[in-house]
Write a protein that binds this DNA or RNA. Structure first.
Lengths: 179, 179
DNA sequence: TCCTATTTGATTGTTTACAATTAAATTGTA
DNA sequence: TACAATTTAATTGTAAACAATCAAATAGGA
């Protein structure tokens, strides 16, 4: 009957405070007014809007990128290389605002599926250069559908999108300066 | 000399294609024009701007939230509870646009440090209700400094911020509809 | 030259994030 | 009342994301 609790919830804890609890929490039926989806303050906070919009983009891209066998961060890495091949990890990190702890395993995955090649720079062996394989370069052709698909889902005119983007870039760069 | 390669890079792989590679990659000295920080197309893509701004917010919040002992997603969960205590996991998931696979471990961590309490709903044992502990409710008082600190770092007027936020909410909701 | 400081990426450990699956409880229906 | 369908979280596995640390290579200064 209480198998939920036994199996999942408090495996390594005494369950007495749950099973025997006698709290009389505010009844939800008595709060029906409040429950009628009062707009959350969270939605007025830019930080949260950006956070949740990033997830929304991620989810929107997922089905499109599944066709290419890429995750969204991997797509960004490939995009950077399509723009300019032969980047060091550091250079890619600057473009994507990511560090080596994130990029190293990501790039190893891209190498494992044959889209890029990682090689120490012969001139400076500290740096690792990332280059597209033919397969990685070829993937670019399939990529147009992805961008088109997302544009439609955004539900904004190209002009609005452009202005919105410019404003956000300012916020982002300001945040990065103050850190 | 090539210990880098031996230790880190290709532990489980033949290294011949690295050490013996004879590729003649485009020399960077010959590309100095291009290297002069030509603005990346990435910065014109809203999806990437949102993605990188989310990380920028995360990093900006980090030092402020460290003082409260919270991560940013944990802060959002606490914020939701400060607005309305006694949420089910599902309700919090709807507010934060997150699913149980993300929230369950996050909430367990908040419970472990004594900020919230998780308990099966006696009326419907499928759902788990999350409530603030006194310590969790008290933390709200320390939270004002956090918001102030971020506002300054954004570098926008409150009006611009409000309009920017409203536009992004529209994009987010449109993306969520189309998914 | 030698030796310290810096640069670069890899590693480790913790925390998100989500898809897919599973289990229990509840609801709906015959 | 039985029994299928739905709902709710938890779990598992994979992939980011980043702080802190480490190792090697290079650069710079005495």
């Amino acid at each position: 009957m209480h198998n939920y609790i036994v199996r999942y919830l408090f495996v390594s804890k005494p369950i007495s405070h749950i099973v025997h609890r006698t709290t009389n929490a505010p009844q939800r039926c008595a709060m029906s007014k409040k429950d009628e989806r009062e707009p959350s303050t969270l939605d007025s906070m830019l930080c949260f809007t950006v956070y949740s919009t990033a997830h929304a983009f991620n989810r929107a891209y997922k089905p499109l990128l599944d066709a290419l066998g890429l995750t969204y961060p991997q797509y960004l890495a490939m995009f950077a290389l399509w723009e300019r091949d032969d980047l060091s990890v550091k250079e890619m990190g600057e473009l994507l605002h990511l560090d080596s702890g994130t990029l190293t395993p990501l790039l190893k995955r891209l190498e494992a599926v044959g889209l890029v090649k990682r090689a120490r720079d012969t001139a400076d062996e500290r740096s690792v250069r990332i280059r597209l394989t033919p397969a990685g370069a070829a993937l670019r052709l399939k990529e147009n559908k992805v961008k088109q698909g997302i544009l439609g889902a955004c539900g904004v005119t190209p002009d609005d999108l452009k202005s919105l983007n410019a404003q956000l870039v300012r916020v982002r760069d300001s945040l990065n300066e103050h850190t």
